[in-house]
Amino acid sequence: MSEGVKVMHHQKTTSRVLNHLVLIFFAALFALPLFWLISTSLKPNTEIFVFPPKWIPSQVFWGHYKTAIQFIPFFRYLSNTILICASSVLGSVISASLVAYGFSRIAWPERDAIFVVVIATMMIPFAVTMIPMFVVFNKLRWINTFKPLVAPTYFGPAFYVFLLRQFFMTIPLELSDAARIDGASEFFIYRAIVLPLARPALAVVALFQFIGSWNDFLGPLIYLRSTEKYTLALGLQQFRSALLTEWGGLMAASTLVTLPIVILFFFTQRTFIQGISLTGIKG
């Protein structure tokens, strides 16, 4: 009997070690490019292009970080990017939750029919609306402002509306009914009952939107004209030109762009995954 327990225990340990080995192998594979990114950013120029490739710089060279923040106006682009990200996150969270509330917590006849349209809009490729939207924004004199990048998030982005609606559906309707009997307005129920319960789902929307805006390349490329309005994603592209690629500087700048988000994710991933799980995207 005790022998059997021992064997089982042994098996468990073996499989645990095996699990870790597999995870470490793949995690290393996934982290390799980030590792290479950081390592290259710390190499002197002479070691960047060598064969066999140097995994670890022979000496740590910080010069590229100086290049990174001087070659492009790094902090200006950073503040532009943060501004766009923050306003977009705010817009998405507020508008998507309001709209999702209207599609889930109030029963009205045409609701579900209109919701089908919401889902259908997700199918329209950006390219279809890109050109006319450019024309519209041009007429509004919004070209070369952050408005074309931010404003749409204030009108209930379909993907997030969908996500939040699925979540709101899971909150028992009795809660709302009780509040209604007490004479609470719909907006009060939205703000005081539904939103607090939906916090993890709102975190998901916030994070998806944040990362989306942080990495958006096409939007800024089309709508931003003057260099002082650029975002980091566009700024990185400036390290490449027909004449010269500043590899070291590019890698250093990329590291600076990436690390804050990695850290952010590390500390928020639990909420994040819980949030997705609760929203029940399964539809």
């Binding site: 709209v99 509330y101 209207g102 009205w108 045409e110 609306t129 006319p132 209930g156 939205y190």
Partner: peptide, 27 residues
Amino acid sequence: RRIQGLLFISPWLIGFLAFTLYPFISS
């Protein structure tokens, strides 16, 4: 309830008309 529902979804409705439907049709 319809009015309330429409009020809540109005951000999407406006956005749909301005940033989706109009560009979609004009394209």
